[in-house]
Design a protein around this nucleic acid. Structure first.
Lengths: 206, 206
DNA sequence: GGCATTATTCAAGTGACTTGAATTATTGTC
DNA sequence: GACAATAATTCAAGTCACTTGAATAATGCC
């Protein structure tokens, strides 16, 4: 190695050290927050920290302390483990039935008796969000998150009542729907068995 | 009808008169602008008007003069006609199983023994494309159309072989996949019954 | 303890968009 | 053609989500 020109000490090294991990963690946190339709302010409030700190964490300019991270994932109704989960964003991913990550949602935020089965893993670089919504008998979604974008779905099994805007539909297995995400929407299992909906939507950040 | 309490004259009526058409035109314009990735400022610049006017037009608070509208669609590389075209894009659309338009595809272009069932009607103004691919026994897709974007799918019934990039997967009912549209992809029915795949992809203009 | 490092906050700044009052065109009516 | 009425357009100010930088509080290491 050239002794006259030793490796630059500052510049990148500092940034890199900060970013090596945090940049991915940050991105994951951001994506999670956006998926939940939360603003920095809102998350900051429920995780009890400042808006600006969140901004820095999400952009890899700071890495949260463990207690902080814990409060964050809690507020996001996620868990620390899978913030670090490895995923392959740009090669194809195939998931077998029954092997997909299952997420139980905060009833207050997302609804009663609903769990999501992830079709598209959380990782950077995905354009779409896709989950199978499993709705227990009598379960229903909470207040809708309204955002720009579009939603498509297909009822795999069960009987549900779906409200889009001011209209109500009763859907059975095999029925499908599309609507603009800005329309208020809400659903409920009205059958006597667990219902499943294959649901795709464009992210809030569009 | 009660003559003592005639319908309220002002309040809503004025708003409604303004909004009746423009609100939809505005929404359409906004969607188009967003699809093009333009900001209000940018569009205002190239259509030679003020940012605030655009905001009002998009929100149905004003309706553009014809010259103005012309400059707008020109800047958006669209045309006035389809700004007024009827689509079910803005209200939700529900399709019952078995009532969806079925399209048999040109074997040369799309493949042998494949027909598509439209989940999202083929009208402009939709962000997503979505179809159920029905593949006859032994049927297979033709050369893939490669474009930027993302694809998600879910095997509803049957056994298929799916190639993504340089990998091959054998999928059964309930399995799902996601991949970047730029990767070459191809599929084939390898079972002994008709196979169906619920398939969503982002348009090229994403 | 003292010192460097880094997490965290506060306050100010930016960019995209919205709103309201003021101005300019358009339109209809006599 | 003139005169209101009405609505299109602009300017300036306001809001909202987010980012940045300097200041402060923790933390860990010697």
């Amino acid at each position: 190695m050239n002794m006259v020109n030793p490796p630059l000490p500052s510049e990148t090294s500092r940034e890199d050290k900060i970013q090596s991990n945090p940049v991915r963690l940050g991105a994951r946190l951001k994506l999670t927050r956006q998926t939940r339709g939360l603003t920095l302010k809102a998350l900051a409030l429920s995780a009890d920290c400042s808006e600006s700190l969140l901004s820095k964490i999400e952009n890899g300019k700071a890495s949260p302390s463990l207690p902080m991270l814990h409060r964050l994932v809690q507020a996001l109704d996620s868990n620390i483990g899978w913030m670090f989960e490895e995923t392959d964003a740009d090669e194809g991913v195939v998931f077998r039935a029954g092997t997909r990550p299952l997420i139980s949602l905060d009833p207050l935020r997302r609804g009663e008796g609903i769990s999501l089965e992830r079709i598209i893993p959380y990782s950077q670089g995905h354009l779409l969000q896709c989950n199978i919504h499993h709705i227990d008998v009598g379960g229903e979604s909470a207040g809708p998150i309204q955002h720009v974008g579009e939603e498509v779905g297909y009822v795999l099994v069960g009987e549900i009542e779906l409200m889009i805007g001011d209209k109500t539909f009763r859907l059975s297995a095999g029925d499908s729907f599309v609507f603009n995400s800005e329309l208020a929407h809400w659903y409920r299992n009205v059958g006597n068995q667990r219902a499943s909906i294959f649901w795709v939507n464009t992210p809030a950040t569009f």
